[in-house]
Design a protein around this nucleic acid. Structure first.
Lengths: 253, 253
DNA sequence: TATTGACAGATGTATATACAAGTTATAAGA
DNA sequence: TCTTATAACTTGTATATACATCTGTCAATA
């Protein structure tokens, strides 16, 4: 879809070289000026590529010194972003199997969409069980809204819904909100995940949106507590903390 | 410290105006060109400010249209970043109380620092109980490494350690890794949080680093499962997915 | 010896320009 | 009426330039 511009290609290339240890942990990348020569681009383009890697936690930019490659193990790599189970599977090399329990067209009740939504909407409902090493680990319940998801073949649900949406339907997946809580499971979840009758389950609920802010997916993922691990990388951001508006020049011309 | 440059001030100002509904949800911000006039800066500076808001999930930039203010409730605002409990308290308006259980100088064993660490290091150990509406909700165990944390007065631990580190010690807090799991609590945690003998606890372990990549804090936060809620905003990033190095022009001049 | 100062090299910030590409509204045309 | 083309406005990308600021080195100096 996107990602065919210079800065993204450079970011991917450097990320790949970090992954393959061509640029090693605890060493500095070539300077921005050297990278300009290397890729034949301007410094701003290099800087935007490095900003992406910095945001992801692959490197730490240090003023006056350079861009240090951080020590992020493959298994401790953030799983907080929007990532499909297939991508995770590939990145972490887990040997996971997906079993489709349900797949049908339905009407999605307003309460599922949001607290303030009024009218229901058509869509698909998919229930999938993820097994890791033959053990049930996660139960996913997805609502996919129509539109924009007009079709959903069973093969896509078995393989990767994200792949299908991005590559076949050409949707531009952009962002999601996620909420993690610990709850008492319902009967279906308890049986599917083989939990004790008084056991708890980790629920990850998310709403996913396209680049034009269209809601297209509502997911609830139920994880066995003993199999659950959420890894995150976060940078300190101070945008929201203080609360004084700017003086003078903000009031307009 | 930082944050006194134009782009950050503009980002904070716009964020503040969104918060106070001067720019309302589901409306567009003034165009980048208008914002240039408004703040008297160049377009790149405006764009870098908007990028910050976009990354935080306050706005969605849409090509050809503008920057749409997203509908993020105050209570569903991400808690995934590096945020101090005091900041959270203020943002969410929770009425929380902090009780210091322990505060002492100690030696931090290598295993706590990392799997590969060899030598132990001096530091402070702080154990704090957070009560929300007079109910124990979270038990925090912090190791603060010396250096860079040379002193840690009790008043700082009661108020906000981050405030103290940033404003009094002048440390530049930059990033952290976090890991969320569900575990069986030890006796201290179980008693402090008033959990049943067979109950589980949510553990959030994090390592926090300064801008020069110095590790300065190791934290384990134990949450009562019924009080735990983790909210996140994530953008889809495709930097790591593909794995083909660039051809030709990357091999050097 | 120890400190200072100058310098080179690195990233950080801000500006200006040009063009590409998506969106919307309007006017021209069939 | 409906469709199409155009124009105006929007954000996206890339380049070039200038200067600020921080780091490390090295030489001059006290």
């Amino acid at each position: 879809m996107a990602a065919l511009n210079k800065q993204n290609l450079i970011a991917q290339d450097i990320a790949s070289k970090i992954k393959h240890k061509i640029y090693q942990t605890n060493t500095y990348l070539p300077s921005e000026h050297q990278l300009c020569d290397l890729y034949g681009t301007s410094r701003e383009t290099i800087r935007k590529a490095l900003d992406q890697l910095n945001e992801l936690g692959l490197i730490q930019k240090i003023k006056g010194r350079g861009s240090l490659v951080l020590d992020i193990q493959r298994y401790t790599f953030p799983i907080s972003g929007i990532t499909s189970f297939k991508e995770l599977n590939a990145t972490l090399g887990m040997h996971a199997v997906t079993k489709i329990l349900h797949l049908k067209k339905t009407t999605i009740p307003p309460c599922e969409i949001s607290k303030s939504a009024v009218k229901s909407q058509p869509g698909f409902f998919v229930e999938r069980l993820r097994l890791i090493a033959d053990t049930p680990a996660v139960l996913d319940r997805d609502y996919l809204l129509t539109p924009p998801v007009t079709k959903l073949p069973k093969t896509a649900a078995a393989d990767s819904i994200y792949d299908y949406l991005e590559n076949d339907l050409g949707l531009n997946i952009s962002y999601a909100t996620k909420e993690i809580t610990v709850e008492k499971p319902d009967d279906t979840v308890r049986q599917a995940l083989d939990l004790p009758s008084d056991g708890l389950v980790v629920a990850v609920r998310s709403h996913s949106y396209l680049a034009d802010t269209t809601l297209f997916q509502i997911t609830a993922s139920f994880h066995r507590p003993d199999k659950f691990k959420f890894i995150d990388f976060a940078r300190r951001k101070r945008v929201l903390s203080s609360d004084k508006p700017l003086g003078g020049n903000t009031s307009g011309k």
